Simulated scan of single mutants.
Amino acid sequence: MTTPVLRLGTRRSKLARTQSKLVGERLTAVTGIPVELVDIVTEGDVNRAPLVTMGGAGVFVSAVRDALLRGEVDFVVHSLKDLPTTPEPGIDLVAVPGREDPRDALIARDNLTLGELPVGSKVATGSPRRQVQLEALGFGIEVIGIRGNVGTRIEAVTSGAADAVVLANAGLRRLGETDRITEVIDPLQMLPAPGQGALAVECRAITATSTDQERFIAKALAELDDAESRACVIAERAVLSRAEAGCSAPLGALAEVVEGDAGLELSLAAVLADADGHLIRHSVQGRVVDARTLGEELADLLLERIDGNLPTTMSTKGA
Rank of each mutant, 00 (worst) to 15 (best):
G277A: 09
V46F: 00
D212L: 13
D307R: 15
D290M: 07
A222Y: 05
R292V: 05
P250S: 10
F75W: 03
R130K: 14
G318D: 13
L172K: 06
V59T: 05
L191T: 08
G55D: 03
E297G: 01
L191A: 08
A255Q: 09
S20K: 01
E183F: 11
T182K: 07
T2A: 08
V38I: 11
S283R: 14
R215I: 09
R305Q: 15
I280Q: 15
P118W: 06
L224D: 12
K122S: 12
R237Q: 15
A170K: 09
V76F: 02
T293E: 15
L51D: 10
R305K: 15
D45Q: 11
T207K: 09
A243D: 04
G9N: 03
T2H: 08
R99E: 15
V35R: 00
S127Q: 06
T31W: 02
D74R: 01
I280W: 15
M190N: 08
E43F: 01
A275W: 06
T3N: 00
G24K: 01
L310M: 14
Q196I: 08
P187G: 11
E202R: 02
N169W: 11
D66V: 05
A291D: 13
T42G: 01
L303R: 03
E155L: 11
A193S: 15
A269N: 14
G140I: 04
P34D: 00
A105L: 09
T178D: 12
D179I: 05
P118R: 05
D261T: 15
T158C: 00
F216A: 08
R281W: 14
E244N: 06
V59E: 02
G160N: 07
T42K: 03
V46S: 10
D74T: 02
M1N: 00
L37I: 00
A161E: 13
A238E: 09
V165A: 10
T85K: 02
E304T: 15
G151F: 09
V5T: 10
K14D: 07
G55M: 04
M1I: 07
G32E: 03
L37R: 00
V289L: 13
T3H: 02
V30E: 10
S62H: 10
